[in-house]
Nucleic acid binder design. Sequence first.
DNA 1: CTGAAAGCGCTAACAA
DNA 2: TTGTTAGCGCTTTCAG
Lengths: 322, 322
Amino acid sequence: MNVTIKDIAAEAELSPATVSAYLNGARVRAENRDAIECAITKLGYIRNDYARALKTRRSRTVGVIIYDLSDAFAAGVSAAIEGTLAQAGYGILICDCKNTGKTLTETVRFLISKMVDGLIVIMPDSTDGRCLDAAVRQNIPVVVVDRLMDRDDITQIVLNNREAAAGAVRMFLSGGHREIAIITGSREIYTHAERLAGFCEALAQAGRKPSAIVDGELTVEGGFRAAKTILTEAPQTTAVLVTSYLMTVGAVFGFGDRPIACAGFDNKAFSAAVRPDLAAVEQPKEEMGRLAAQRILAAAAGESYAPGVITLCAGMYSFEGT
Amino acid sequence: MNVTIKDIAAEAELSPATVSAYLNGARVRAENRDAIECAITKLGYIRNDYARALKTRRSRTVGVIIYDLSDAFAAGVSAAIEGTLAQAGYGILICDCKNTGKTLTETVRFLISKMVDGLIVIMPDSTDGRCLDAAVRQNIPVVVVDRLMDRDDITQIVLNNREAAAGAVRMFLSGGHREIAIITGSREIYTHAERLAGFCEALAQAGRKPSAIVDGELTVEGGFRAAKTILTEAPQTTAVLVTSYLMTVGAVFGFGDRPIACAGFDNKAFSAAVRPDLAAVEQPKEEMGRLAAQRILAAAAGESYAPGVITLCAGMYSFEGT
DNA sequence: CTGAAAGCGCTAACAA
DNA sequence: TTGTTAGCGCTTTCAG
């Protein structure tokens, strides 16, 4: 059997309540403090957070639901969430929907059964917002990152995707480009739909049309093939916006030596290192994660939970003469 | 207040014990089953796993400690762990040491306080194995992935890194290459030290010496710079082994059009998509994660926990005429 | 097949 | 400041 607060109390010849109080920061007579500390190290006591959570009704754990842990964006945001939360003594329970095959609703229930103090969802797809009902009903603060859902009782954090894409287009235009194409992902995915919309709007504003709109799989290979498609079907193209990082890497290879200007998302490090002619829209992953975590922490600390939409701006890095 | 098993019992006019028994798979009279199910959906009951864990002494949660969630290898292994564990109804509590700044010992204690049923550590550095003492003392099964620690009371899962590197060298040799270099990471890191050792051994066996040994930072940029170094300082080089994925991508750019044969780690998808001349050593991330998770599950299921070292073999993909 | 009672380890009143 | 008591929500003997 494990060593409990009772054992410490016995060893220190005090009551469990006193030990508990001390552990929670209350003032205790110096000699008792020493006795407790001594007993703790001697017996190797580690506080049982489950028992504590059961009593206090706070688990100091938050659930993070993401579609795919292997995705760099999601992993980056998750890392920031973890960092912020860990600093406050919280743990994170991660659920990767992709390889569990469970529905969001089931996953939410699973996490509720784990008594999470908050829920952060990073799911790019277009699942119905009702899958969060159970959590909201239990007053669990919910933050959705990187997409918009049709509900006003949760916090949503998104990038200004339209403006980010439009910015890239304007950069191309002012650089003299007139035949501008886009390599994008499925319209089912919020971010890609928005980026495409921003792209088209900015072009329309300049009185132009896209030289090509090519759908690609969200992989290096997808970007590679999409680039080849542009080369053959819209050879007049001189500039291309690519709406995801992996596709950007593939597209760069696909274009090879062709003098085609490229801008992508999240490829800042990649560009800075090996392709300084490649412009990058950089999503503030750290900030998104930190904000999400802080929202949960604030709610857990009793601050009134104010749902709403937080829209962040992307950084634009143009490197050498694009 | 939340709806508990008592509420269900009251609603169904049964005792909590009966409801609990039913929930745990015991046989109940059909009418009672219906009454319980009915009450559950009516009241929206979700079982409190913390209370259950406290009683049963099993949290159905395992802790995963990794150095950096943003690292593709770690994320891939973690995803496999998550998938396997989720299927068994387990949750995973992820701790990213890099951005919490906590020591491994502290993190282990944190996870113990969360009553984890097992611990999986994916830390490439050379931290002393004693940081796992607390977990072992509590009979928590521990699996360490991707490095070897000097203890025989835990399970360790590693790749046969030496053999993997040697295989790449033999491939180069049989392809007619004689001036072979390596771009590698810090010797402090188990995997890089092993791969370098295997590289040197295989060359020595063929009576040759490395044409260059270049240390790089484990990033795209690091690989890029290392490639440039080889170009200037060992221009006779015709083949290069790179010991990490990001460095491989950087090196490919660094070498540009030069006719230098390359082999890297974990770049299979990348190569298949855009550089079919690039050979790849592929680490079985999924298998590593699955094995780790299964070990924990087996131990949790009461099977005797047999510590030891599991050595896996890498896949070798040579693509077009390397 | 069902119920009563005890307790997992902890905290929160309240009393001393 | 410290101790007593009760109870978080669940499971688990042991009777019935």
